[in-house]
Design a protein around this nucleic acid. Structure first.
Lengths: 203, 203
DNA sequence: TAGTCATGTTACCGACCGGTACGTTTGGTC
DNA sequence: GACCAAACGTACCGGTCGGTAACATGACTA
């Protein structure tokens, strides 16, 4: 970098200029919380792995619990991205959209080391309704359920709520079974079973 | 109890004479571990609630991890009892046996405060394959899966493994959804969906 | 009545937990 | 260079974690 690097003016868009430390913490927390669980990971380990120190964490996040909630908000964004990834390939075809997601999920959930859904896992880790992380997770799952209902209605299900319930059970079952069983787990049958269920619901 | 209560001889069946403290610890641990999660509960709280002290715990159990594994072994026994509870009402009818269990589960999983399956929860809490509690849980789930396969075969499924996979996904999904959603959760549709799936698999 | 042994108790350990007071560095502005 | 605020690091806090050494107690045997 040979020349002087001076941004002329404009104190940079106030949002964009994320303090480096906070972002490193965020990413590190995300990876560790997901892989090892929230309770299993101490703030010390997060800041060490992120190459920062504890006060940097507590300047950007009010508490470990709040950092966990933030992690889940990030996780949720990533989830919806994956969930809607194939939508443009199947415009207006809710069934194909959903099955595209299911296919990807079935693949991931039969990989060794799969850890399921970070949001569901957080609910298991924090049974009490008051935990901020749990609140994020529960709100997300309600959104997901509603979304499934509209998708099921648009694919012409006789009982859209019931089909959505069934597909949600399969989803959550895949999250859990993926970490319970290894590569040959029941998630391998997810797609076939979901197809059966949808077919039966249109009949 | 007016008379002197002296067992004449026979130093009581050696197994039956469980030391009171160990048993209290076992029961207390079981309740707390299930309700709050294993990581959330410290040994101090267990012994306090059980009315004993820590050394009593460590004389009967090698470590907290081992106590957790013991809790899951107890949990598994209780599970099979419930799972097979309706069997004598439907001798030789695997489908009716399974649906009887599903009906009970759907009811429990739509109660407020439902905490899912202790074995699945333990796997979520301990991602590492080496933890003794996780080993118990995974062994149990393999057993359950095998059992479902034989049941599905005996009800005449075209693809018993696939139907068993589907039902297991529904099961695990119910465990998770029960704690995610309240009383009107997707577990309410478990029975109807399972029936659809079984019907489709016989066709 | 003395001995034995399983069980229960008091008091403590080092390690780690989440969280913070306070000093130091850094980078942009004149 | 002088200044200043924002970002960062050092060192530490009380509390709790899982686990243990050493001792007291009680019940049964001889």
């Amino acid at each position: 970098m040979p020349t002087k690097r001076t941004e002329p003016s404009a104190p940079v868009p106030p949002d964009d200029a994320k303090p480096k430390a906070a972002e490193r913490i965020r990413r590190t927390a995300r990876e560790l919380f997901y892989r090892e669980g929230i309770r299993a990971i101490g703030v010390e380990e997060i800041v060490t792995r992120a190459g920062v120190t504890k006060p940097s964490l507590y300047r950007s996040y009010a508490s470990k619990d709040e950092l966990a909630a933030e992690y889940l908000r990030d996780y949720e964004l990533a989830f919806w991205k994956v969930f809607e990834a194939g939508d443009e390939n199947h415009p207006g075809d809710a069934r194909a959209q959903l099955m595209a997601y299911f296919e990807g999920l079935a693949h991931r959930a039969t990989q060794a080391g799969y850890r399921g859904c970070g949001l569901t896992n957080a609910v298991v880790e924090y049974p009490g309704d008051e935990h901020p992380a749990r609140k994020v997770a529960q709100a997300h799952k309600r959104k997901l359920r509603a979304r499934l209902v509209t998708m099921c209605a648009s694919m012409g299900a006789k009982l859209p709520e019931q089909l959505a319930d069934g597909l949600l059970l399969l989803l959550e079952g895949t999250f859990a079974s993926g970490q319970l069983f290894g590569k040959q787990g029941p998630a391998r049958s997810l797609v076939a079973v979901a197809e059966q269920l949808i077919d039966a619901s249109l009949r």
